[in-house]
C-alpha cells in the first residue's frame, strides 16, 4: 500500500520532497445514530498521489472524504492529515482545513460575492494576505482555470461548468497541499463536464495531492495512481487503474464495472 507512482512527466518539477503518508486513515469507523456508514477504513496517501474513489451511490465515499477535512466527524480510529490528528480540538480542525481544499458537487460558491471576492475571501481573512496580493494570486488561478474575464461577475451569472471552475480556483487560492473533489461533475450538463475535467487533469499534472470521488472512469484511467472501490461503507478493492479496470479481483467490483462501463 502507498507506493508512489509517478507516471506523469509534468510532475517532476515542484515536488522537491515527497512526503510519505500525508493523509493517514487508520481503522476509521463512522455511525449515523446506529447506522454503521463507514467500516474500518484504512488508507495512506503520499504527497503528490492521485486517488480516485468510486462505488455505487450510498456506499459512503462522499462521507469518507468529508471526514478528511472534518465536515463529518468519525467516531473510532484515527485520521492524520499532514501530521495533525483530527480530534474535537477546533485548532486542529482549522489548521487541517487550511491545508485541504475541497470542491463540492453543487459548487457552493457564495452568491453574494463576485467571483474574485469568492477567491480572495479566505486568503484575506485566514491567511491574512494583503488584498492586492490576494487578488493578483486569484487572477492567476482564474487564468489557470481559463475564466479571468468573469472575475467581476456574480456566481449566478455563470454557467455550471464555469461555476465549478471558479470553485476549483477558489480552493487553490488557499495554496492547499491536498485537494478533495466530491463528485465535481455530477451536477453538470454533459457538455460542461469536459471543461472541468480538463482543469482537473491539468491540476493533477502539476503534482497536487488529490482525492476524487467521481464516476468519470476516463479520468480515473488517465490520471489516477490508485483507484479505490467502496461498497457498503467498506473499501472493497484498491489497485492501480491498469489493474483495476482490466483485471478486477472482487465480484462486487466486477459487477459495478459492468454496470458503469
Amino acid at each position: 500500500m502507498g507506493t508512489t507512482m509517478t507516471q506523469h512527466p509534468e510532475s517532476k518539477d515542484s515536488q522537491a520532497e515527497k512526503k510519505p503518508g500525508i493523509i493517514r486513515v487508520e481503522g476509521m469507523h463512522k455511525w449515523y445514530g446506529d447506522f454503521h456508514v463507514l467500516k474500518d477504513l484504512n488508507l495512506a496517501v503520499d504527497q503528490g498521489e492521485r486517488i480516485v474513489i468510486c462505488g455505487p451511490s450510498g456506499s459512503g465515499k462522499s462521507t469518507f472524504i468529508r471526514c478528511i477535512n472534518r465536515l463529518e466527524e468519525h467516531q473510532q480510529g484515527r485520521i492524520i492529515v499532514d501530521d495533525v490528528e483530527l480530534t474535537d480540538d477546533v485548532r486542529h480542525i482549522d489548521s487541517v482545513r487550511r491545508e485541504v481544499g475541497m470542491v463540492f458537487q453543487h459548487f457552493n460558491l457564495f452568491p453574494h460575492l463576485t467571483v474574485l471576492e469568492n477567491c480572495c475571501l479566505s486568503p484575506i481573512w485566514v491567511r491574512k494576505v494583503p488584498r492586492r496580493e490576494a487578488e493578483a494570486a486569484a487572477m492567476e488561478y482564474l487564468e489557470r482555470v481559463k475564466i479571468p474575464d468573469q472575475a467581476t461577475k456574480y456566481p449566478g451569472q455563470l454557467s455550471g461548468g464555469q461555476q465549478q471552475r471558479v470553485a476549483i480556483a477558489r480552493a487553490l487560492c488557499m495554496k492547499p497541499k491536498i485537494m478533495l473533489f466530491d463528485e465535481p461533475t455530477s451536477a453538470l450538463d454533459p457538455e460542461m463536464i469536459k471543461e472541468v475535467l480538463d482543469v482537473m487533469v491539468e491540476l493533477a499534472g502539476s503534482g497536487m495531492t488529490m482525492i476524487c470521488v467521481t464516476h468519470e472512469m476516463g479520468f480515473a484511467k488517465t490520471v489516477a495512481d490508485r483507484v479505490i472501490f467502496m461498497d457498503g461503507g467498506e473499501i472493497v478493492e484498491e489497485a492501480p487503474p491498469s489493474e483495476f479496470f482490466s483485471n478486477p479481483r472482487e465480484a462486487r467490483t466486477q459487477k459495478f464495472l459492468q454496470q458503469i462501463l
Partner: peptide, 26 residues
C-alpha cells in the same frame, strides 16, 4: 444552505468568520 457553511469551513474559515462573512450577509 448547509452547502454554504460547509464551503466556508472547507476554506478554513473558523465558525465566527463563517457566520460573519457568509451566513449573516445572505
Amino acid at each position: 444552505s448547509q452547502g454554504q457553511t460547509e464551503a466556508s469551513k472547507a476554506l478554513g474559515l473558523p465558525n465566527g468568520l463563517t457566520l460573519r462573512l457568509v451566513v449573516i450577509p445572505q
